[in-house]
Design a binder for these strands. Structure first.
Lengths: 191, 191
DNA sequence: CCAATGATGTCAGTGACTGTCATCAGGCTA
DNA sequence: TAGCCTGATGACAGTCACTGACATCATTGG
């Protein structure tokens, strides 16, 4: 039947789970990789075979996120202006987070509590920006317009996401993103 | 006369100098903190009394940069719209880099060559963005307009700076910033 | 049944970073 | 001048993230 052999399945998933739990219980710095591995029934060495470092275990999902973003840009109608394609993409990504709801907030609480994790989050956002710019270029958008639209889009997402997280009520993330984008247009328009 | 006592003066400066030299000679990863300290005539422990970690030694100047940015925003005429005050600030910072010329390029080469250093650079840019937003708020700009203008401004700076660095000729950074800002306006305007 | 493969364990490092205490110059005060 | 305080440094031991090298063992294909 199933592969129930020497090793329990889904080692990576167990490591992610154990890490998130421990980071929530004691905090990121107070958790050692050895402890994470032990809770997952594995060794420290194996942890580093699955994740490049102690931070990456929290950001494994960002690859999927990037794919969504790129696909959304590619799927935008040909007639859409660069910023409209960008807007459509970040709004659809917003809907993803909307679903994950509680999980997203817990994860974000861990990240917000630690400088090293916030640092890594910036890298992930920069990577998303680069991928977004590349997707726009494939639509024929020239530089530096592609990079600028991408940076602006990610900036809007960052700010809208922060507002959504801090909202007590269950506001709609996509709406916040749309509003923030309009604010950006107003601000850059000079007034 | 001078304090020529037990210790040579300017320990921090000597550490910065030694670190930049070694990072250029062998690369960031291949350099140990012990080596930096030795070249500066100090011990490893003392290095960590001056800099929080091995990366910070390259970013000590960012505090000054932040002051310039904040002052420039504060000095903008009251009548200036948020994005205009932001534009004035990043252009004046651009002039700063223009002066440092060769040094800026050497430093940037070291940073570009290493992922950890690029990561730290993102933190510094995010810090600048936060300070810029704060300065705008002091001008009476409301949220999220202040944060959005700040993020957009830093994004423009980042992209313009990258173009300036990769230019072979000695193009004018302030001009590139101005052009990039106009591009952003065009892109966010929807066409 | 055997060989190749792949995920894991074991072990011995290196090097970044920290806590703690000792040392020593300059300055302040009695 | 002696005594004391302060601040920068050295010396030293320790923790922990991360890596390289090699052994182990289930699965898979022949």
């Amino acid at each position: 039947m199933q592969g129930m052999g020497r090793w329990e399945p889904n080692a990576r998933g167990r490591l992610e789970q154990a890490a998130l739990e421990l980071y929530l219980e004691r905090g990121f710095e107070q958790t050692t990789v050895a402890e994470i591995a032990k809770r997952a029934g594995l060794t420290e060495r194996t942890f580093f075979r699955h994740f490049a470092d102690k931070r990456e275990v929290l950001f494994w999902g960002s690859g999927t996120l990037q794919e969504h973003l790129v696909n959304a840009v590619a799927d935008a109608p040909e007639s859409a202006a660069p910023m409209d394609a960008t807007a459509a993409a970040i709004e659809s990504v917003g809907a993803l987070f909307q679903e994950r709801g509680e999980n997203a907030r817990r994860r974000q609480a861990v990240i917000a509590a630690n400088a090293e994790l916030r640092e890594r989050e910036l890298v992930k956002l920069a990577t998303l920006s680069a991928a977004l710019a590349e997707a726009l270029r494939r639509r024929g958008v020239a530089e530096p317009a592609a990079s600028l639209a991408a940076e602006a889009g990610i900036a809007v997402f960052k700010i809208a996401f922060g507002r959504w997280i801090s909202e007590t009520g269950g506001a709609d993330l996509s709406s916040i993103i749309r509003e923030s984008l309009d604010e950006l247009k107003a601000v850059t328009a000079g007034r």
